[in-house]
Design a protein around this nucleic acid. Structure first.
Lengths: 216, 216
DNA sequence: GCGGCTATCGGCCTTTTGGACGATGCCAGG
DNA sequence: CCTGGCATCGTCCAAAAGGCCGATAGCCGC
């Protein structure tokens, strides 16, 4: 998995690569290792291992997928930045819902790039981040701009939304949150207003589109 | 980057690589081209281009992502097999909903592998398929086994489901399909029974999980 | 301390949903 | 020709959802 390389004169920037798809990891590692100034020093296929690998290798930059088993990418970004405020993290992902993007950036990611990026652009992005710059994929930036109308859900609204998206009825939500059905309706009403919808099914659609919940 | 290798005696199996993620394409191409007996002869980032590329290059095997813009992967498999009943297609994808798997196989795919496969296993899979074998990823096979209870939705039920998942109310669905609200309820009732649910929100969850609809 | 946001709850009322009886016509397969 | 699946539509009714009128209490910031 890791590529031990004892012969190089340590001038190469050290990269930690985190993605749950072995195939993509191998592919990206190949690309990066072909660059004279970059080297993948460790790989991980989930968030927990990513943190361990970070501690062991102290990479100059971490390329990280969101959507992983064991630990969410955003959470990984947050924790990396907690233990090392200098940590440079590039988020490399397939999806570009406005919520995920803004959460990743808020957590301290230096760049947000999509997997449809060209190999050349990725290595340029890595160099930019190493040089202290930031980079947001155009598509992601556009989504963010849309979401200027950023909805800010309260904790209870989020909890309600999650149960809603799980197909629960008001009564079930009430039981799960240990509140009255009346209060559930109250949260729902606020939710509907913030999402600009009028029914629960619509709410599910919009919330999913914005990345507020996932139906997997 | 690629190593043009004029010295080999053209014995290499020719691979067409189709995926909308440039990064993964480059990575997989690297992996494949490092094999002595395999060579990527063309790439495409969408279904239409894939068909064109197939006609031009007549590859020995096509490695194909489902979920692409312009043309769905399953449709591509179907058309490839139409124009060349010998076409060998390996589906390489992130997702493993039972509906997508069974549709891809029904369309004539020889193999279904997930992107978390190891590079080595992928090339082995390619060789297997070239040798006339088939391969289903264990996770995918398991999902298929679950779905032995394969739900078969009628066209009207599918149409209703799609509108439902789009957040439409019964009245709106009725208008869209130009039928009475009563009939919509009838379709919904059948839908609920087939999906083993009791509400529309639950139906959305299960249908999404099974890959019957997508909320993007 | 007041205004605003949050969370909680109540009643009342309309609309929507979903279940339970139904029914008809069509069409394909045995 | 008959059976079974499909699509269509009806009525009745109970439950759920959602809108509209509230209310109280805590907490935070200015």
């Amino acid at each position: 998995m890791a590529t031990p390389d004892a012969s190089t004169p340590a001038a190469k920037a050290r990269v930690l690569l985190v993605d749950d798809h072995a195939l993509l990891r191998t592919g990206v590692a190949n690309i990066i290792n072909q660059e004279p100034d970059l080297r993948v020093v460790a790989e991980a296929d989930n968030g927990r291992d990513a943190l361990d690998a970070y501690d062991r290798h102290k990479p100059d930059v971490t390329v990280l997928d969101l959507r992983m088993p064991v630990m969410e990418g955003v959470e990984v970004v947050r924790r990396l930045r907690e233990r090392d405020s200098q940590a440079r993290v590039i988020v490399l992902t397939t999806y570009d819902t406005d919520d995920e993007i803004s959460q990743a950036l808020k957590a301290g990611a230096k760049a947000y790039v999509l997997k449809d990026i060209a190999a050349e652009d990725l290595v340029n992005c890595i160099r930019d981040v190493l040089a202290g710059k930031t980079y947001i994929a155009p598509a992601a930036a556009a989504k963010l701009a849309e979401g200027v109308t950023r909805v800010q859900l309260t904790p209870r609204e989020m909890a309600t939304l999650r149960l809603l998206a799980d197909g629960k009825a008001n009564k079930e939500i009430a039981n799960a949150l240990d509140i009255s059905e009346r209060t559930v309706k109250s949260h729902l009403a606020h939710l509907f207003e913030k999402l600009a919808v009028t029914s629960r099914t619509e709410a599910i659609k919009i919330a999913t589109r914005r990345g507020l919940v996932r139906l997997d």
